[in-house]
Amino acid sequence: MDMTFVIYKLILCVVILLLSLVIAMYATLAERKIAGFFQDRLGPNRAGTFGLLQPVADGLKLFMKEEFMPANADKILYIMGPSLTMLVALLSSAVIPWGGSLIIAGKEFALQVADINIGVLYVFAVISIGVYGIMIGGWASNNKYALMGAVRAASQMISYELAMSMSIVTIVMTTGSLSLNEIVAQQHGMNWNVFTQPIGFVVFVICAFAETNRAPFDLPECETELIGGYHTEYSSMKLGFYLFSEYINMFISSAMIASLYFGGYNFPFMDDLGLSHNMITIIGTVVLFAKISFFGFLFMWIRWTLPRFRYDQLMRFGWKGLLPWAIANMIITGFISLLIKNNFFAFLTK
């Protein structure tokens, strides 16, 4: 294996890992700030200018807190829960294309850790095992509220995965590829999937909210009913891991929404600017992060606007609301793409 290849992948891995951690850190601050602004408050502003050191203070506080473990907890699984959640949250960033490619010294370096030909399915697999951390942690706490949270998380995840996969399948049908890199590359310029798949987009966004356990779907941690849900018994950095992985999940979900529906690193008129290849890539990455920030903001905006679902409403919405829409969208898309393939619309262009 080429040594430069190894070093470049290593650098990319480290950069993406650190980036997701730092972004998750500052997402906590952004969440509190934005919540403040939505409620005519200021949000945290004491630690550093504009509260910029607040995440550091929060992290330090969590590290200093007492490590508590319930007496009858399953020791190994109790520790495994948050670790698994964190691991799974970080896993899916591997296949997201963070930008085009940089050409340095005649060699092309793609800004994607692993361009596997089943990238979409990989992300989907990672999402589907994401619930294990919550379930294990909730069960191992030996607390009925935690168990209730875990059970809720499991049923919610399974229910919304279906509609989510259906909307992804529609994307796969139109693009004809399971590789995320290919899907993003096909949305070159302004050919974003959101224009051809508006229903799929809405379904995907709603499911993304449910999969990340964010309001209005935060029933697994629902404070008013379940105290803290699956992390009721957790303290110190184990709790920190749970809270932190929620923000990483949010970041990754935003990146997925941006990549699948909003063209990823593509931006309008990218061919007409007359810039060099590397310059386009750098601007593209910046554009991608702007899109991610927008969707992150959307996540928070929704959270501080909508009240929480009731549990039966959640289930009814998932199975009787989203799933039929997703399936209908899939059938319509299949029908139309079949017509296009058979030149049915040729009379329009005549």
Partner: peptide
């Protein structure tokens, strides 16, 4: 997950 759910 369903197995785990049921057993829990």
């Amino acid at each position: 997950v369903l197995f785990l759910f049921t057993v829990m």
